[in-house]
Design a protein around this nucleic acid. Structure first.
Lengths: 223, 223
DNA sequence: CCAGTCGCTATTGTCGACATTCCGATGTCA
DNA sequence: TGACATCGGAATGTCGACAATAGCGACTGG
């Protein structure tokens, strides 16, 4: 939605090592390639990534603010270790954010275009239902990001994205397969339906329930 | 609340240039010393702050994620320029976050201690009512931060803090004096009152209304 | 055998320099 | 005169090196 070109001619800026390192690290962490708790040694990482420490440090600062990396004593950074309470906390905030999005969209005047795009997003989820695991996760997150994006509130989108990394870690916390087993399409459809009919409170509640259930489900599978 | 030592023995780590630069820049921006739109030239700033560019860059990355600095073409950074719609957007998200906080606190079991602390925060606001302008702003933000802090949800607090810079810029957008004239203590008292009686929906609504009114007020004073 | 001290090592903090790239001025040729 | 090539200048991107410090282990004196 944003990492990819917005539409036609979205973004052609795809260079600079910092961004690449950022993407690589984010992926490594949310994939589990870098296990939670792993101490990230700058010299080591910079060598593996073939970039200088300075460049790496900039990327890590950002990861830190995204909640993927936590700081220990003496400036030491480590991959964040999530606990059950963290997952619950994250999804509570997420619910507030996406709940706001759903309400805003429900109260909007020209909902047709928005609803159309959300339905497309759901369609994409169904299309990928027999595809790659990561692909399905991606499709799910795309839907939820779209929810925020379509409100036209950049701050809301930004806040959501700041949480995206944590959300991905929550998924990993429970295991990708297990997390996916909970992602029923009808859950999302009912949210869109409420938005379509302009049922603001219904849409908000649908989102909040969805989030709470998901969190509960993920926690139940806790390590 | 967090910048200051937590209580006794809170934090004794107060060095490293990056943090200092971060604080200095944050202050300069939210004070207006660095006007919105100002192009932040790395070489120039690093010389003024007497630090190296690398160190400065790390600080600026963080400011960027906090929404105080926006990136233009070719990696150029500039002090973010807020418009009326930005202020509205920011306060919408803020309302969602603090609304969640208020609801959580209302539904909590042992509310006495929490309520006590919030009342203390209000007291501090009143104490500073004839003090320095910045002091009053600080007291106000302290109250709202406490709202998030007391929920015990670190993610919520983190998200709020990510927004704090933007909130401060919104205040500056309208002018500190004007912004302060809207901060009536009774507004906050009614929030605490609702929390005290366990009225979750009332507390949430009180917060949301407070936020919406404030946003409206700030926008009305637009530059 | 224990305690205290000294020095080494691992890792982060900070810096200055070089590389790259875009923008604009300048100059030249049809 | 207008368009195009070229040359600086100004910023950002990236790098490698040095400084500082905490933690650890060995060594020594009692």
């Amino acid at each position: 939605m944003t990492a990819a070109p917005a539409s036609l001619l979205g973004g052609l800026a795809r260079s600079n090592l910092r961004e690449q390192a950022l993407t690589a690290l984010r992926r490594a962490i949310t994939t589990g390639e870098l296990a939670p708790g792993t101490h990230l040694v700058e010299t080591e990482l910079s060598e593996k990534l073939q970039i200088s420490r300075g460049t790496l440090r900039e990327a890590m600062r950002q990861l830190q603010q995204e909640g993927l990396i936590s700081a220990g004593a003496r400036g030491r950074l480590a991959v964040r270790h999530l606990g059950a309470s963290d997952v619950r906390d994250i999804f509570q905030v997420r619910a507030a954010l996406e709940g706001l999005a759903a309400r805003m969209l429900s109260e909007q005047d020209n909902r047709d275009a928005v609803v159309k795009k959300l339905e497309d997003a759901i369609q994409r989820m169904e299309d990928s239902s027999d595809g790659d695991l990561d692909e399905r996760i991606e499709a799910d997150l795309d839907f939820h990001q779209a929810l925020c994006f379509l409100t036209g509130n950049p701050t809301l989108l930004h806040s959501w994205k700041s949480l995206e990394g944590s959300i991905r870690m929550s998924v990993m916390y429970a295991g990708v397969e297990r997390a996916l087993s909970n992602m029923s399409p009808h859950r999302h459809a009912s949210i869109v339906e409420a938005i379509k009919t302009g049922d603001a409170v219904g849409a908000t509640r649908a989102v909040e329930e969805h989030m709470q259930d998901t969190a509960q489900f993920l926690i139940g599978a806790g390590t």
